[in-house]
Every structure is written in C-alpha cells, then in structure tokens.
Amino acid sequence: MKKEDSKPTLEARRAFLAKLGGAASCAGVVVGAATLGVVPAIAAKTGAPPDAGSFPTKDYDWTKHQWGFGVDATKCIGCLRCVEACKNENEVPRNAHQFRTWVERYVHLEGEEAVRIDSQQDPVNIQASGSEKEFRFANRYKDAKVDKAFFVPKLCNHCAHPACVQVCPVGATYKTEDGVVLIDHDYCIGCRYCVQACPYGARYFNEEKGVSDKCTWCYHRITKGLQPACVEVCPVGARIFGDQKDKQSPISLFIRNNRVQVLRPESGNAPNVFYVGIDKEVN
C-alpha cells in the first residue's frame, strides 16, 4: 500500500501522524485528568448533600412534609377569588386563557341530557366580568330550569406518577421530596411536551418567559408556613391544604373524614388533589 503513496502525501501523512500523536497524548492527559479530577466532580454533583442542614431553606426541611390538597366541591360558590389570588401571587399572564387554577361550572338543565360546562374563560363569562383580566361567572342560568348545578375548582394534581415529569427531555420539571411537582424556569427549553402530556390540562406555556408553567401549590408560601394563595382566600373553605404526614392537619382530617376521589384515576398518574362532591362528568 505504501508504495502507491506519492512523496508529498507521505510527508503530509507524517505531519498528520505527528499531529495525531500529539493530539492522542493530549487526549491521554485529558482522560487522565478526567479520571482524577472530573470523576470526583461528578461524584460531588450526584452524591449526598455536602451539609446536613435542612433543604431547601434554613427553616424548612422537605423530608418532614408530604403535602396534599383537598377540594370540597359542595362548598364552592364559584366566586373565582382563588383564580384572582393565584394570578396575583404567581405572575400568571392576565388573560382568560392561561391559568394555574380555574373553576368549572356544571349545570344540568331540565330535559337536557348533556351537562353544560363552562369556566371563567367562556365568552359569556368574560362579557359578564367586563374584561379578560377579571373573572366572574355570568348568571346565565338564573331563568332556566336547573336540575342540578355545582362548581368544581381545578388545579395541578401534583401526581405521584406525573406524566409531565416523565416526558420532560431535560429534567426541568420534577417531583420534590415533599410531594410537589415544580418547574425549573431557568432550565426549561420550552418544548411543551409536558403541556401535551398532562391529562388534566393543568399546564400552560408562558410565551413571555418561553417556558411551561403551572401550579406549584405556592411552594414559596408553604415552605414559609403559609397556605397556598387560593386556599388563603377561599371564603367558604372549599380548598383544603396541609401536610399528610401530620395526622391532625386539615388535609389528613379531610381525607379521613370523607370518601374522597381523584380525577382520571385510570390514567395511572395517582393525583394528590382529593375531591369530595364531584359528579360523574367531572374529569
């Protein structure tokens, strides 16, 4: 084979080989450095926390809590103050199409088979509130013959097996030790696969920030001993929040004293928002 090489190529080849040799030795050094330096670096990133202090804040240790949320739909009056509070608390875009929490209204009219469902994003309700930035249920059924009607608050279910976390390609959404599903807005690439994967429609895409967003159970509040904003403002106690590890917490009592159900149990997501008083159509 070598015979066929012309002279200039031979020289070129030698030069190339010399370079390659250099490169190889460089690579060797780097690999050596890697085994010495990088591996401990990875170990530090994957290993146990360097300090034994509480996480994520000084005063809050997430291993001591397991949060849960209850909705008593029999109490909800559809005032939508929860939606208002949530939009204020969490910088949710002020429009009638993107929500971290929302309220649905189910109405059975006499003589009608199908249930009528609307929420604050319905044009009739936007008209009643006067603007896409305000939220109010129009009294559209006041003259109708209503067989049965009720309101159902909705929010992220913070599932035990969240489909959204499963599909996130980068690890920008995750389940915390205390049972909350969060989104890392500084790491999300904005592919919206999670929005598609959520069977509950709990996620939306924040165009301004270029990332997905959803309810966090007001993680910044609950880690400071406060209630989530929607729970705080609910005037009728339709929203219940608490620590499932504390047997006397509102949520533990709510689950113990009621026959609770979850939305779309067949999805296998195992939600952590527990409902009382919802009907067969609610999902």
């Binding site: 499963q166 790491y187 690439i189 904005g190 270029g210």
Partner: peptide, 17 residues
Amino acid sequence: GHPERAFNSTITPHLTS
C-alpha cells in the same frame, strides 16, 4: 421557547422522556 438551551437535552438527557 428557549432554543439556546436545546443542548440541555444532551447534557442532562432525561431517560424516561
């Protein structure tokens, strides 16, 4: 939403996705 972060999926690929 953040094309500049596209390589996050090769830096920390989430294998269940």
